[in-house]
Amino acid sequence: MNHLVFLLLLTSVCFFTRSEVVDNFSKCKEFFLNNAPPVFKPPAGVSVVPICQCLWDDKGQPIYLYATLYSTTWKIPVYSAYVYNRSKSIGRCDAWYIEPQLDVHYTTEKCMRSKGHENNIGTNQALNSDYENSGYDKGHLYPVLHTNNHLSMLATSTLTNAAPQKSTFNRNAWLRHEKAVIEDLKSCDKEAYVVTGVVPDKKKVKMNNKVYVSKYYWRATCCLKGGQYIGKGYYGPDEQDKVQELTTEELNKKLQEFYKVKSPISIFPAQISLKLNRKRERPS
């Protein structure tokens, strides 16, 4: 009965959100190009978990909206993957949620929700309290600007889809970049596949001595245009606090360098990344 009352209260604020911590992305693979998640092997000692981000429908069934690979070591997401459709003006509801399953392994509750009073919540994930007086913004990976419906907008406001981001970068260069991506993807024949991620700054003091702040944010896009794949890669901030554009294959190599891993990284399926790179190299 108490659980039902809690659901009704939370639903009255915005909507009841649910995220499922899973062994792999099989339940939400449609958010990856060709159903293939990025090839990413985390550095030694870094733990990651796949999350299928979703909402309940009116029949009690999950509506999956995007996918996140979350690091319980860094307490920030490695990336979020989503399908971009032509965006339209969506309001926002910043009711930030946490995922109980990341910390309370014995819980039968599989729903993302506001922080309760259980012990150990926050052991494997960031909390709102970690951001208080930190000087950092909660930087969305899947941004509200790239959603085109109310449910997707609500589902982006989870701390498993955010990382500490410098406010000057978040509200200026990165915001302009998010708007520019919308314009760029207008040329796509249909939907576009987007993966946005974070590289932690391992040399900085962690936020609240716990949550790694971001050193770089990155994004890769891919879609069909005229029957051929087109795509771009981005990362920032650079030395001038701006966003750099590059090919997806160049971004793969940059990320391997940034994360300091030996295994190659491939955001999109290797054969498609190669096509995108060759297309970029052709003389105009």
Rank of each mutant, 00 (worst) to 15 (best):
K179V: 07
E249S: 04
N161Q: 14
H105S: 10
T158F: 14
P38E: 00
V13Q: 08
L224Q: 09
R219I: 06
S19G: 05
L145E: 07
K88A: 14
D241V: 13
R86N: 08
Y66D: 03
E250Q: 04
R92T: 06
A180S: 10
K260G: 02
D94Q: 11
C54N: 11
P77V: 04
A162W: 13
A36P: 08
F31S: 02
E99G: 05
F15P: 11
A95S: 11
N149M: 14
P62C: 00
V181C: 09
T247Y: 00
Y259S: 00
R92V: 06
S80M: 14
Y212M: 14
G236F: 03
Y235M: 09
L246K: 08
S134A: 07
M207F: 03
K41Q: 01
V13F: 04
I272G: 04
K179M: 07
N120K: 11
P50M: 02
R113N: 05
R113S: 05
P164K: 08
F6K: 11
Y136W: 12
N120A: 07
L33Y: 00
Q165C: 13
D23S: 10
T17R: 13
L145R: 11
E249G: 03
I51E: 01
N85C: 12
R113V: 06
A126S: 11
P269L: 00
Q271V: 10
G227P: 13
P50C: 02
T73D: 01
Y193H: 03
V195R: 00
G45D: 00
G122T: 10
S71V: 07
K253M: 00
T156P: 15
W56R: 15
R278K: 09
I182K: 07
Q271W: 08
L55Y: 09
T147A: 14
V49W: 05
K275A: 10
V144F: 10
R171M: 02
S80K: 11
E257C: 01
S273D: 02
N161G: 15
V181H: 04
S157Y: 13
F258H: 01
L154T: 15
I230Y: 09
F40I: 00
G227S: 09
E245I: 14
L276I: 04
V22N: 06
N24K: 06
A155M: 13
